[in-house]
Simulated scan of single mutants.
Amino acid sequence: MGHLLTEIRKNPMLWLLVAVPVVLVAERTKPDAHTLLFLLSVLAIVPLAALLSRATEAVAARTGDSIGGLLNATLGNLTEMVIAFAALKAGQYALVKASIAGAIVTNSLFMLGGAMLLGGLRYHVQTFNVVAARLQAMLLFAATVALLVPSLITAADRVPAGPAVQNLSAALAVLLILAYGLGLVFSLGTHRSELAAIGPESEHEETWPLALSIGVLAGVTVLVALVSEIFVASVEVAGHSLGLSPAFIGFIVVALVGAAAEMTTAFSAAMRDRLDLAIGIALGSAVQIALFVAPLMVLLSYVIGPTPMGLQFWPGAVIMMMIAALTARFLTSGGRSTWFVGVMILVVYAIFGLTLYLIPPTP
C-alpha cells in the first residue's frame, strides 16, 4: 500500500482521484444534474485510467517491448471497453460506434503524432523497428477495411440495413477476432525476434509488488465500470447543453479520456528514446480496438444489447478511419522519425476534430 500512496503523492494526475467519490455521491444526491455528472465523470476516469496504466507497467516490468506494448494496449483499452460496454447495454449504439472510430483515429494519429513530436524535440532523429511498425500499420489497414465494408456496401449498392447486413457484420466480427489471435501468434511467437525493439534497453525502475498491481487492476476496473455507467447516462443531455454532438463526444472526448493513461506511457517512452514501445502502444491499441473491441461489441450486442448492432458507420467516420490507417502506414514505413513528422500527424487529427465540431454528422 505504501507504493500506491507514494505514487499518488508524486503524480499530480492521480490527485484527481478525489473526483471518484465526488461523482458517486453526486449521482446519488443530484441525479438530474447531467452536465455536472458528465464533467465529474470525465475528471474521474482520467486518474483511474492513469492508475490502471501504472499497474499495467508494474505487471509488464519484466517483459520486452513487444509484450509490454501489448499489455499496455490491452489494459489501457479496458477503459474504452468498459465505456463501450455500458453504452451498448444502454442501447446507445451511436456512442459505441463513435467511441470505436474515435479510439482508432486518436490512437493512430494523436498518440502516435504526439509521441513522435515529443521524442523528436528531445532527440534529433529517432529510429524504430520498421518491420514491427509496418506489421501494426498493415493490421490496422486490414481491420479498417473490414470495418468499413458494411458501410460502403450499403451506401454504394443502396442495400437497406437488414438481416443480411447484420449477418455480414457478425461474420466479419468472428473473422476479425480470429485475425487478431493469429496476429498475436505471429508477433509474440513465430517472428518475435524480427519484431524486437532496436532502441535502448528498458530502464530499471522500482516496480510494485505483483499482488498490489493485480489488486489495483481489479479495484480500478470496478470503479471505472461504476463511473462509466454515470458517464453514459449523462452524456446525451450534457452534450446537448454543452453544444456538443454525440459523434464529437464519442469520437473526441471519450477517445481522449480513455486513452489518457496510454498516452502518458507512450509519450514518456518516446522521450526516453524508446520509440518502438511508443509506436507499439499507439498502433497496437488502435489495432486492438479495430480487430478485437469493435467485433466483440457486435457479438455482445446479441446478448446484452436491446437489438443486434452492426458495423455500419456514418460516412465521415468511414473516411476518417481510412485516412488514419493510411497515414499511419505511410509515415511509419521509413524506420526514422523527427518532430516534424509528429506535427504532420497531429495536423491531420486536428482537421478531423475541427470538422466534427463544426459539421456534426446528421443523426
Rank of each mutant, 00 (worst) to 15 (best):
H3I: 12
E7G: 07
R9C: 08
K10V: 15
P12I: 13
W15N: 11
V18S: 11
V23F: 10
T35G: 05
F38D: 06
A44V: 04
L52F: 11
A58V: 06
A58T: 06
A61V: 12
T63K: 15
T74Q: 08
L75Q: 09
L78H: 07
I83G: 08
A84F: 01
A86T: 08
A86C: 06
V96A: 06
A98E: 01
T106D: 14
N107Y: 04
L112R: 01
G113C: 04
L118S: 14
Y123S: 12
V125K: 10
T127M: 07
T127P: 00
A133S: 03
R134Y: 04
L135M: 13
A137N: 02
L140Q: 00
V145A: 01
P150S: 05
L152N: 07
R158K: 15
A161Q: 13
A164H: 12
Q166H: 14
N167E: 15
S169R: 02
A171R: 11
L172W: 04
L175S: 12
I177R: 01
A179T: 08
Y180I: 01
S187I: 10
H191D: 12
H191I: 06
E194N: 15
E194P: 05
E194Q: 12
A196T: 13
P200M: 06
E206T: 13
T207M: 10
W208V: 03
W208T: 02
W208K: 03
S213K: 02
G215I: 04
V216K: 03
V224L: 11
V224C: 03
V232T: 06
S241Q: 10
P246M: 10
F248D: 04
I249H: 05
I252H: 05
V253E: 03
L256I: 14
V257K: 05
G258N: 07
A260C: 08
A266M: 08
F267Q: 08
S268N: 12
D273S: 14
L275F: 00
L275H: 00
L275V: 02
I279N: 00
G280I: 02
G280L: 00
L283R: 01
A286F: 02
F292K: 00
A294Y: 04
L299E: 03
P315Y: 13
P315V: 11
A317F: 11
M320S: 13
F340D: 13
M344Y: 10
M344D: 10
G353L: 10
T355Q: 06
P361T: 12
T362G: 09
